[in-house]
Write a protein that binds this DNA or RNA. Structure first.
Length: 146
DNA sequence: CTTGAGCGA
């Protein structure tokens, strides 16, 4: 009795890894060849063209002046601002740069995107409009509307 | 380090 069990266990244990591995590999290879990623990873443009530029990856010590000076090489910078938390006064690590024309903005993005600034690689792309104001309707604010 | 806030001219 004992030898039967031992023989069976040994046989199964010895043959399991190879058999399973070969089977799985074969199945996976047939089902998933080196095809391109099945995930529909679309790559839409960063944002619609705008004169406002969003720059991220800034160093904590980088200031609006540094941004303006860095982007002024590709066009006239109408406005440059590094976002900082006014509550604590700490830099959030990103900023915004506005040009007067879309051509300058595009030049600034293509010229500064992926470049190093203050020791950090920065990313530049078109910025989106700021957070929209909430409808904010509540009792007391309405004076007979609705 | 990845989407900002200000109001005095």
């Amino acid at each position: 009795m004992a030898m039967m069990r031992a023989a069976a266990t040994a046989t199964v244990t010895a043959g399991t890894p190879r058999g399973l591995r070969g089977l799985l590999f074969s199945t996976l290879s047939s089902s998933f060849p080196f095809n391109p990623p099945p995930t529909n990873q679309e790559k839409p443009p960063p944002a619609e063209p705008s004169t406002n530029l969003f720059v991220s990856g800034l160093n904590k010590r980088t200031t609006s002046e540094g941004l303006r000076d860095a982007f002024a090489k590709f066009g006239e910078v109408a406005h440059a601002r590094v976002v900082t938390d006014r509550a604590s006064g700490y830099s959030k690590g990103f900023g915004f740069v506005r040009y007067n024309t879309l051509e300058e903005a595009a030049a600034g993005i293509k010229g500064m995107d992926g470049q190093f600034l203050e020791g950090w690689v920065i990313f530049a792309e078109y910025a989106r409009p700021r957070l929209p104001p909430p409808p904010l309707e509540s009792n007391g604010s309405m004076y007979g509307r609705q």
